[in-house]
Write a protein that binds this DNA or RNA. Sequence first.
DNA 1: GTGTGTGAATGTTTTCACAGCG
DNA 2: CGCTGTGAAAACATTCACACAC
Lengths: 209, 209
Amino acid sequence: MAAPIPEVVILRLPLYFRVLTLLQDETEIVSSQELGARLQITPAQIRKDLSYFGKFGIQGKGYKVNQLLGELRQILGLDRKWSVVLVGVGRLGRAILDYSTLGPHGFHITAAFDTDPRQIGKKVGQLIVQDIAVLSDAVKNQDLNIGIVAVPPSEAQEVIDRLVSCGIKAILNYAPAAPAVHSDVRVYNIDPVVALQTLTYHLKCLSTP
Amino acid sequence: MAAPIPEVVILRLPLYFRVLTLLQDETEIVSSQELGARLQITPAQIRKDLSYFGKFGIQGKGYKVNQLLGELRQILGLDRKWSVVLVGVGRLGRAILDYSTLGPHGFHITAAFDTDPRQIGKKVGQLIVQDIAVLSDAVKNQDLNIGIVAVPPSEAQEVIDRLVSCGIKAILNYAPAAPAVHSDVRVYNIDPVVALQTLTYHLKCLSTP
DNA sequence: GTGTGTGAATGTTTTCACAGCG
DNA sequence: CGCTGTGAAAACATTCACACAC
């Protein structure tokens, strides 16, 4: 079953997972119809997406919420804890640490780094900010899996290269940059400004018909 | 020129805009080749994307950086200021206000609201938190264009309905929910947990080949 | 009857490849 | 020559529609 699953499908699975989590103490069984209604996704799409991974439904009924949750948990790799390293503890990095609703979802920020010598040694939250020079050791010793990058754009590429050279294969990038990485490394960019700029395009379209 | 531009194209335009901004005091002219190299996007794709809006290049040369920036600014509606209203001033909302690199890009958070009576009247940053009940007046009086939603998931749909009923047509949603809206309203969801969950999928794939 | 799973059909996006222009 | 702009082709994603299972 080493079929190549489209990336768009992977992007939707976490949405299914979340809705099912909400649904789990509300109902036993849910149809692709109902699921789709809550997510603005067609039932056919949901069924097709799930069919890439197996047959999880009961014909004529729908999907057992708990069972499907279990399947998705396994598919997405959520049946374990993940250790996350934060690089960049400026305002943004601190906000991420502080806000961080990540814990309940199995993600734990277990190390923090910065390139700025003035930050090193300082305590943010529970963590002591370390010099990025010792990143490599920390990744090995603490089994860090995922990097969150919250450094200024000018440093992003360098920091990401460093994470990659330490063996990190998944990066959540908050820096407004489009870093280049080897193809076996995944980078997910989050950038509110880019998001807002797509929104203004649509606003402009509405006002000039 | 009322052609239907694919949404994926709109999602890429802000990326072009940003790279061009970086490039503008470095070079006069840039080719789709170079632009693509910086963004991991094929030159053909860039040319095609731009061709939806007009002919901006010089054959045999490339694109004049400044001119293309101007065109994109106009296309994306970035040639004006936009007023943003923040709903939800809990930890996340405060982080957004505090972090906010939005100003330099022409986005200004000019009002803050909350549903929690204990927050109302408090000062966050420059703003006084207002009762969501008076949102409607504020939207009209201050010409608010965009809503940022940073409330708990259980309130997200209600808050978004309210924004929409006040005439807001563009929403940046940080709440982990997939709200339903009328089709002339744009919602862009930002959810780090969903992002991380797509990353873990790929990590899991690497470890079980 | 009801809703899943799925091949086939449709629609959309990306890539190709080349004519034409500076 | 070098690179844009663009129809046409290829790749990809979504929707349809129905056989089949409960």
